[in-house]
Computed example of a mutant assay.
Amino acid sequence: MTKALTMLKAGLLVLMMATMAVPVMAVQPDEVLEDPALEDRARELSKGLRCLVCQNESIDESNAPLARELRIVVRERLVEGDSDDEVMDYLVERYGEFVLLKPRTDGWNMILWLSGPALFLIALGVGASYIRSRSKAAAPTEAALSDDEKKRLEELLNE
Score class of each variant (00 low, 15 high):
I59W: 00
E39F: 00
V74Y: 02
L101K: 08
A139E: 07
R50M: 07
E76V: 07
V92M: 04
S62E: 00
A137E: 14
D106N: 13
Q28R: 13
S58K: 02
S146I: 04
K136W: 06
L12G: 13
L91M: 11
A137D: 10
A42N: 00
V53S: 11
C51D: 05
Y95M: 02
A128P: 03
E86S: 08
G81R: 03
M20E: 11
L70M: 13
M16L: 15
Y130S: 09
M110N: 05
M17F: 15
L145V: 02
G116R: 12
S129P: 00
C51F: 00
D60G: 09
A26V: 01
L121T: 05
W108Q: 10
P65V: 11
K3P: 01
L12R: 14
E154I: 08
G127Y: 02
M1A: 15
S115A: 11
E44A: 15
A128G: 09
V126Y: 06
P29F: 02
S46H: 04
G81N: 03
K9G: 03
S58P: 05
R94K: 15
E76K: 15
E154A: 12
A123P: 00
L78S: 01
K47G: 06
N56K: 13
R152M: 12
V99D: 05
V74S: 01
A128L: 09
A4K: 11
K47T: 07
P36I: 03
M17C: 10
A26P: 00
K3R: 13
G11S: 08
A137N: 12
E97F: 05
M20R: 13
W108P: 03
E142N: 14
K9N: 06
S133E: 08
A137G: 09
A138P: 11
I111T: 08
T6Y: 05
A18G: 09
G81K: 03
A143G: 06
W108G: 06
D147P: 12
W113H: 07
L70I: 08
L100W: 03
M110L: 15
V126I: 14
T141L: 15
R152Q: 14
G127F: 01
A144D: 14
V73Y: 03
S83T: 15
D82I: 00
E149Q: 15
A42K: 00
A4C: 06
V22G: 06
T6L: 08
L101N: 02
D148C: 04
G125Y: 10
V27N: 02
A37P: 03
R77D: 09
E149W: 07
D40F: 11
A139M: 10
E93W: 10
L45I: 15
G11Y: 10
L119I: 06
A4D: 09
Q55F: 07
C54W: 01
Y95N: 02
G96I: 05
C54N: 07
K136Y: 10
L156M: 12
Q55T: 15
L38D: 00
